[in-house]
Amino acid sequence: MKISSISFKEPPVYHEFPPLYEGLGLLEVSSFIQQRFEFAYTLGKVEKTGLGSIRLYKLRGDLEVHISDKLPGVVPIKLQQLKCLLLEKAKTAFIENIESEPEKRKVYYGEFRRTGKDAE
């Protein structure tokens, strides 16, 4: 398996969660910076394309690659290898994009509290 190209589709987006949720330590409610990309990869003799995103979790400082669609012919073990290859290829460019972006696009998540009699 080989990655032939990666191109970012949009600037990085900052996803901010309220401090109430940050303190829980759950990855799904932790603030992160995300950027979407398109990539081309070779599997056997066939070149295919896919869409994915790379995330930097602020709290832990971890980078992760997420692939949004199922890729034909890619089994779970190959998918994990593909994610590792994409992470290595996209990591440097992603960090440069974060540092060079003058206007930061942010998405804020609100607090989800129960109201009225459901709160008891």
Rank of each mutant, 00 (worst) to 15 (best):
G23K: 15
T49V: 11
D69W: 00
H66E: 09
A40S: 15
L85M: 15
H15S: 07
K58S: 09
S7N: 14
E96N: 09
Y14K: 00
P12Q: 06
F112T: 09
E99S: 14
V107A: 10
L59A: 15
R36G: 05
V65A: 06
A93L: 13
G52I: 01
L20K: 13
L87Y: 07
L27A: 10
R113D: 07
E64C: 01
I77D: 11
E22C: 02
Q35T: 05
F8L: 04
V75F: 14
E64N: 07
A40Q: 14
K89H: 12
N97L: 10
R60W: 10
E96C: 04
E120N: 08
I3E: 06
L79D: 02
G25F: 01
Y108C: 00
E103Q: 13
V75H: 14
G116D: 11
L71P: 09
S7I: 12
R105K: 13
A119R: 13
F8T: 02
Y21L: 12
Y109P: 00
D118L: 13
V46M: 13
T42S: 11
E47R: 15
R105P: 00
K91D: 08
T115A: 11
E38M: 06
E16I: 15
F112V: 13
I77Y: 14
E16S: 13
F32K: 14
P19M: 04
I54T: 05
I67Y: 04
I77N: 10
E38K: 14
L85T: 02
F8H: 04
G25C: 01
G116H: 06
G73E: 04
E96P: 00
A119M: 05
I95H: 09
P12Y: 04
P11D: 09
A93C: 02
L20M: 11
D69Y: 03
T115I: 12
Q81P: 01
S31N: 03
K58H: 07
L79F: 11
Q35I: 03
M1D: 12
P12C: 03
L63P: 08
E99K: 15
C84I: 15
